[in-house]
Design a binder for these strands. Sequence first.
RNA 1: GCGCCCGUAGCUCAGUGGAUUAGAGCAUCAGCUUGCGGUGCUGAGGGUCGCAGGUUCGAGUCCUGCCGGGCGCACCA
Length: 566
Amino acid sequence: MLRQTLSKQIITLAQELWGQELDTGGIEVSFAADPAFGDLACNAALVLARRLGKAPRDLAEALAERLRQRPEVAKVEVAGPGFINVFLTDGALYRAARGGGQARVVRSSRSQKVLVEYSDPNPFKPLHAGHLYTTLVGDMVSRLIERRGDEVIRLNYGGDVGLHVARAMWGIIQALGGEHPDKLEAAAGDDRAGWLGARYAEGSAADEDDPEAHKTIIAYNQRVYRLHETNDHESPFAQIYWTGRQWSYDYFKQLYTELQVKAFDRFIPESEVTPLAVKTVQEQLKQGVYERSDGAVIFRGEAYGLHTRVFINSVGLPTYDAKDVGLILMKWRDYHFDESIVITANEQSQYYEVMLKSVEQFEPEPVRRSRHLSHGMVKLTGGRKMSSRKGNVVTAMDILAAAREAGEATGTHPNSDTILAAVKYAFAKVRIGGDIVYDPKESIALEGNSGPYLQYAHARARSILAKLGRPAQANELVQPLDEAERRLMAKLAAYGDVVIEATETLLPHGICTYVYELAQTFNRFYERNRVAGDEREAVRRQLVEAYADVLRDGLTLLGIAAPDRL
RNA sequence: GCGCCCGUAGCUCAGUGGAUUAGAGCAUCAGCUUGCGGUGCUGAGGGUCGCAGGUUCGAGUCCUGCCGGGCGCACCA
């Protein structure tokens, strides 16, 4: 907030002094890397110098002169080629730090309705590591949007029709020795989701290796579509299907609960959007948006620098391209959203462009409001890759188990809070976009840049506060800060801007970087400065409290619990 | 072949709307700390920021080319 306030002041001053329209572009106000450069550093004079053809140091001096009149400014220096280094008063830092504990991002505009679609697991298949990643990232992104003051509707879209379902059905029917829904329960045992996953793997392998099975699977695919069309819940085939689908949704919901992510507002099965999808594509086929080719209905993306994709295959079934057309139209119809965000893996980003481009031809508004965020793959240390072929998947549960095992190997016995903190933080701290390498040992470690480390740092700060007893009820800084205290306070004051940055970019990793640096700053302070019983206890208590509040708030934005005790 | 993304210390990563000396964790080495919870603190070594040009007073950050890697390019999601 301090940073933004100063930016605005500088823009105003540039207008007054030289009539220069400085939008936010170009000038930069940042928290100083070195205490010698003050609390905030600004390069405005260097940018203005080029435009005005004047010496940067002279411009910097002129700006500095005006900034010195501000009440929250203690001192302003011009340094180097023309940097303006601003030193704030203790009181200004304190107020910024207190405000940061529950950093709110106030926007002048009305609250927006934002759809966020993520996780998107397919029934009949297990949640693999990639689903875990999208689920956690989607939860974090949603929290950031909410912090922005907007309403978030969490959507979960999954393929309950399509070839993968047909493959699973093949595996199931094989295992049951025919279409015998009555045998399902006994066959599956306790681990229903695991059992379904194994059947899918068998069906998938058979589809590739066995021509007879392949034929049957193609037929099953059509039967699954048809049972939706005819609303068939009675036939043995349909009973197997609906039971399996329900088991999958039960399993997904249970897993989301275990992950402690906010609940989804709505699950949208593909079958629900299929009728609208088919109807729309066929209408737009007549309008010339889509066209026929080799018996299929396609969209030619080349005209827009993209590629051609099939929307309805030559058998007459919609591909996932068409279903996504139905999905976006359904979202638009049901929610009339201000913004719609879809989070998927990178491999889908070009596909998504083609699909959106086709919809833009006949329904441009929802497309204009849509945004696709994509992330990379999850890899394990040692180069093990996640593969969903042939059943050798690394599942979401495998990742959690790996964290637990790594923790136990070091002699600690991590509870579920710790394990979740480890995995969530490990995923959160890397910028969304590229592949990430997950190292269970590093993630669960109590030292280094890890989730458990930060949970521990928070718990310890709370423990200090508990020892001190009742708070001092101070709304003002009780004493001027000494040097070590001041450094910590300056770091705390930066939090509000970190949150603003994260909510604007929808990238959570900056919060991780900040929160870890904050813990380091605190440890440096704490190493040499007693709190309990010190003559400066009152002021230091305020620091510890602000520190604990900021840690908790940061972790909360990441969906990580910050218990008072571990 | 075309398109999209990526290449920063041994490893994993920040930093990329140009700007004061390129940072962190892990690993290695040397000290300190064993009564505010076990995390820690101080310091050292380790970087031609893939390569080559260009723009600029100034480039890890912008532009171009190349090299290397990942992904996508018609009936699978």
